[in-house]
């Protein structure tokens, strides 16, 4: 009480001094008095700022304690980058596989078309009785060759088209990997929103401190993982390396 009254008297004294200095035009002296007047308020501001900083620090610590964020940043996000890189590699491979098949198929189709076109011309001249005997013999030989070759070459085209079809399996495999990364991004987002909500609750002391759970509400966890991506945590698990491995495992189970 006394100290409050002392403060008040001291401030009143400073204020009167300030008016005096200003009236006398003593700008420097007035500035000194203004600084003196400000001191108690600044102290309060710094104390408040200090308290806020401590609160924020504690919030972050408590959040880190039981949240997924640390795990996400340390493991899952580097993993996700590796997954997306793998998607780039897989799509590149699938595209090359498709284009390689097309590179081989196009000349076959073009050559079949050209030879069929040539034979059609000769055949029409034959129908119009314009061929000499030796020309007819040549045509017959050409047709023999063409029939054998076209059967082989169309079979090759069929194989190449199958190859193109099988190359499209990347869409399923990369799709599963991308969906997994999307789930991760969603989880990071939820954790960050949780962090912001938690911090604002702590800052607003009148509303009290929200309990830090730091957990995202999990849906029922799927039993599936999607394709194994090299250089991620997938590859460190006990996984098969291919169909032969699957067959060996199943046969060991009596399949």
């Amino acid at each position: 009480m006394d100290s409050d009254e002392d403060n008040l008297n001291f401030q009143l004294h400073l204020a009167q001094q300030l008016v005096g200095y200003l009236e006398a035009g003593l700008v420097d002296d007035a500035a000194t008095v203004i600084r003196q007047l400000r001191v108690p308020y600044e102290r309060e501001l710094f104390e408040e700022l200090g308290k806020l900083t401590r609160d924020l620090h504690e919030t972050l610590n408590s959040f880190r304690g039981d949240s997924r964020l640390a795990e996400l940043t340390q493991d899952d996000i580097p993993d996700a980058k590796e997954r997306l890189n793998y998607v780039v590699t897989m799509t590149e491979q699938a595209t090359h596989r498709t284009l390689n098949a097309l590179d081989e198929a196009m000349p076959i189709a073009e050559s079949l078309q050209a030879r069929a076109h040539g034979l059609t011309g000769t055949w029409q001249r034959f129908r119009q009785r314009e061929l000499t005997v030796s020309e007819f013999r040549n045509m017959a030989t050409e047709m023999d060759t063409f029939f054998i070759a076209s059967s082989e070459e169309t079979e090759r085209l069929r194989t190449l088209m199958s190859e193109v079809m099988m190359a499209q399996d990347f869409q399923d495999l990369t799709g599963q990997i991308i969906r997994r990364v999307i789930r991760l991004v969603h989880e990071v987002e939820e954790n960050l929103v949780g962090l912001i909500r938690l911090s604002s609750a702590r800052m607003d002391s009148s509303k009290g401190v929200a309990k830090a759970t730091g957990k995202t509400p999990h849906e029922e966890l799927p039993t599936s993982h999607g394709p194994i991506v090299p250089n991620t945590h997938d590859a460190t698990g006990d996984v098969v390396s291919g169909q032969d491995d699957v067959d060996a495992l199943l046969s060991s189970l009596g399949f």
Binding site: S224, P227, V240, V246, L250, L253, F255
Partner: peptide, 25 residues
């Protein structure tokens, strides 16, 4: 399926699957 964990293949076998193919196949 692309699921390639040994545990999963065993799980499918125990659940009565007749064949198991891993993607890509």
């Amino acid at each position: 399926t692309a699921e390639a964990k040994r545990d999963q293949i065993v799980e499918a076998a125990q659940a009565g699957v007749n064949g198991y193919i891993v993607k890509p196949f």
